[in-house]
């Protein structure tokens, strides 16, 4: 199996058996994975919602930059770093 690496053309998605769910009790989004869970912050939730396995990373970054009214050069590195980390920890795959 190839090591996961994030690039502009990657089409990231949640890894198999990883679920982004809204927790109605705590009123926040949570990421469920085998015997693990993540409590993502708001930005991470926005990023993960874009990870549908079809949208290229470059498009995701453009979309978030528009939503946040921030330059792509500012948003891009943060999104790449976040997804690279989540890939290495097995929550996201490309």
């Amino acid at each position: 199996m190839a090591r996961s690496a994030v690039s502009d053309t990657s089409q990231p998605r949640l890894a198999d058996h990883v679920k982004l769910r809204f927790d109605a009790i705590r009123k926040r989004w949570v990421v469920m994975a085998p015997e693990r869970m993540l409590l993502p912050d708001e930005v991470a939730v926005d990023v993960l919602k874009c990870c549908d396995g079809a949208t290229p990373l470059a498009t995701i970054i453009d979309r978030l930059a528009t939503d946040y009214q921030a330059p792509v050069e500012v948003v891009g590195p943060d999104v790449v770093a976040l997804l690279q980390d989540l890939c290495e920890r097995g929550f996201v795959t490309t």
């Binding site: 769910r21 927790d23 009790i25 949570v30 469920m32 015997e35 869970m37």
Partner: peptide, 9 residues
């Protein structure tokens, strides 16, 4: 589930 448990083993 109603209490807030998210994962069951």
């Amino acid at each position: 589930a109603r209490l807030g448990v998210l994962q069951v083993h």
